[in-house]
Design a protein around this nucleic acid. Structure first.
Lengths: 229, 229
DNA sequence: ACAAATTTAGACACTCTTGTCTAAATCGTC
DNA sequence: GACGATTTAGACAAGAGTGTCTAAATTTGT
């Protein structure tokens, strides 16, 4: 609103640009070396900035780390929701459309730089900063999973799928679609496009064999009978 | 063979016992703090041993780390193969038997102390020691996955399942059975017994909906048609 | 109980890192 | 071109951790 007097406005561009490049470089170094192993001098060098500038912007190592996690979480969530918006609510070819969605989700949110880094930081330092990662959990999986579940529920309601519990189905969808990428993720690698497509294809096919339109009464009865196992 | 002259035999017990307790303590500290953050003094203290003893046994920090990974890999693999040996080759109640197998696998190999630690070390330091973890990959997933796949192939051959590709089915089985534990694993937590059973139950049910005995010709034809997508 | 080996506590040198400080150089804007 | 703010290079103190060394204490097998 106010033209240019706002107290929170730093020197127009260069400043913010440097802040960004510092956070970016820090993300890379924290991922490679872990929090304890990360070296501020190295971060400064990779950001193309002097060490003092890092301290000017972020105060200390821990605050810098938190800024990194917050930035990554925010960008990843934005990407995930943008991708969820492309979910095939009225599919033409259900199999192809779900495969496409799964591939987009993987490529845009999980296998890209931000996704890879955030995942690694959560795995590596999650136990050290409970509140920080509780926040991630709440804003990340806590919101995206129900959103995906809702889309599957709509598909079921529309007669495209036969689903008992949309939340379970959503989690299993993700599990299936990533089933063949586990080892690669484990070691911090990035699967290539082909691997992602292959895993998604196999995963979706199995998903549809299980949940595709086919309300077989025999199965329903059997499941009800075993429900209290 | 030789009574007591063997050059590799250290003082009978206490020595080896200390070696063990050092490696154990080191595993815990490396997991909590990462390689760079791990403190030899702390490891010594947790092992109930003096710092010098740590150096006497393992030389330096890096060699100690390698010893930890090797020990964990070996124990985990042993556990996994022992569990695979309990795979239900001639199931009475297929669903119940597969759920039991999945729960055993999780509890004995993935959620126990060794499994949790090894997983975390692979995620955290995997990129820093490529050869070490290549070894793990080869001796771990590289051998256990085919072993599980072979068991599923046998079930299919016996008419209990309808499976195209046993390797894919095996990976998807693991993905499904762990679908609901992902977030917990991500943050380094240990799911409780109930969560494991619940996830396994849901996963096996979906698995059987997809691969259970039901050679529906319609499905087979559809898949063949889409095979070159 | 003896002798050999192992373990221990403590001190030590050395390196690395964090975070601060200062004076000079640079940048952006008017 | 000049001004104010930011950035920079470098030095610096303080702290922490690794790995070595020594002499004394303890354990182990016989």
């Amino acid at each position: 609103m106010r033209p240019s007097v706002s107290p929170d406005i730093f020197p127009p561009r260069g400043h913010e640009a440097k802040r960004l490049s510092i956070v970016d470089a820090a993300a890379g170094v924290f991922c490679r070396e872990g929090f304890a192993g990360a070296n501020i001098d190295l971060i400064a060098a990779e950001a193309g900035v002097s060490r003092q500038t890092v301290y000017n912007h972020h105060g200390d190592k821990e605050k810098l780390f938190m800024a990194v996690v917050r930035d990554l979480t925010e960008r990843c969530n934005a990407g995930i929701f943008a991708t969820i918006a492309t979910f095939p609510d009225q599919p033409g070819d259900l199999e192809a459309d779900l495969i496409g969605f799964a591939v987009r989700l993987n490529q845009n949110c999980i296998c890209n730089r931000d996704g890879k880094f955030l995942r690694k930081l959560i795995q590596t330092e999650g136990e050290r900063y409970p509140e920080l990662f509780a926040e991630w959990r709440e804003h990340g999986p806590g919101r995206t999973w129900p959103a995906i579940a809702a889309r599957f529920a709509r598909l079921a309601y529309g007669g495209y799928l036969t689903i008992d519990d949309p939340d379970v189905a959503a989690r299993q969808f993700l599990g299936l679609v990533n089933a063949e990428l586990q080892t690669t993720f484990m070691l911090g690698g990035t699967p290539c496009e082909d691997e992602v497509v292959q895993s998604a294809t196999n995963g979706v096919r199995t998903f549809l064999r299980a949940f595709g339109r086919r309300p077989s009464p025999a199965n329903v009865k059997k499941q009800a009978a075993l429900a209290h196992a």
